[in-house]
């Protein structure tokens, strides 16, 4: 008997519809709740996460779907405070340099920084979009911490030889882990700024980032301070919906 049959049989015995069933207007099921209530956590308790919990989260990453089942990832777990602080310092130093070169609001370069920003934003439209641009200065000033004090960080290295679009597969794999972590009562935050460690030969060597691997993302992991999770309002997305030879917009 398959897992699905077992589950539906149990719930049938309990006299309620299975979780694996769509019932109109029904309350969110546990999986939907995990997805909808999970927020990015940026304040962590000192307490370390049990090793078993991290292993369990990595298991969920291991079973993520990937193009051609190529599994184009490698995980690096860092639970060493000294190392995490070292990486934070390295990223902060680089943010200070970028902030000096680009942030016309603060840089002593003034107008030259404005011209720099106009040029570099055009060259790096994603990396220097408004939000990360502002974060560079916040990190440089020490107002925003890279790992937010998380005691464990999972780095995802992308195997560039992966089938199809390995960067997408890395995202899918990471989100599996993030949701699994949330379901275990842990907080997570995606840390894209570890990107700046690419400019550090020392940290690349220490983390084993060499061909075919590329530093893709990091996930900060730990017990949150307070209760940061919950459902919130978000922008609706306009969906183009084709059906019966017609197209309509669904919001």
């Amino acid at each position: 008997m398959g897992v699905m049959e077992m589950m539906s049989e149990t719930s049938a015995r309990e006299g309620e519809a299975s979780m694996y069933e769509y019932v109109e207007g029904r309350d969110f099921n546990p999986v939907e709740k995990v997805i909808l209530e999970r927020r990015s956590v940026r304040r962590y308790r000192e307490e370390q996460v049990p090793e078993g919990a991290v292993r369990r989260i990595l298991e969920c990453g291991r079973f993520a779907p990937s193009a051609g089942n190529s599994q184009p990832w490698r995980f690096v777990v860092v639970r060493d405070r000294k190392m995490l602080e070292g990486m934070e310092r390295a990223v902060r130093l680089r943010c200070r340099v970028f902030s000096f070169l680009l942030d016309w609001r603060r840089s002593p370069l003034g107008r030259l920084a404005l011209l720099n920003s106009r040029l570099f934003i055009r060259l790096k439209r994603n990396e220097l979009a408004p939000a990360p641009f502002a974060s560079i200065t916040l990190i440089a000033l020490g107002k925003l911490r890279l790992f937010h004090g998380a005691p464990t960080v999972i780095f995802i290295l992308e195997d560039r030889r992966g089938a199809g679009k390995p960067h997408v597969d890395v995202g899918i794999c990471g989100q599996n882990m993030v949701l699994a972590a949330h379901s275990l009562g842990l907080g997570t935050c995606w840390v894209g700024f570890i990107e700046l460690l690419r400019y550090s030969p020392y940290w690349k060597r220490r983390l084993g980032v060499r061909y075919p691997y590329r530093l893709a993302e990091a996930i900060a992991l730990g017990y949150p301070v307070g209760k940061p999770d919950g459902m919130v309002a978000r922008e609706l997305q306009e969906v183009a919906w084709f059906e019966d030879g017609k197209c309509r917009t669904v919001l």
Partner: peptide
């Protein structure tokens, strides 16, 4: 953020719906 970063195909803020 406008111009190159203009938000497209977005509606108002709304909590999850059932």
């Amino acid at each position: 953020f406008g111009m190159y970063y203009k938000a497209l195909h977005r509606g108002d803020l709304c909590p999850p719906r059932r």
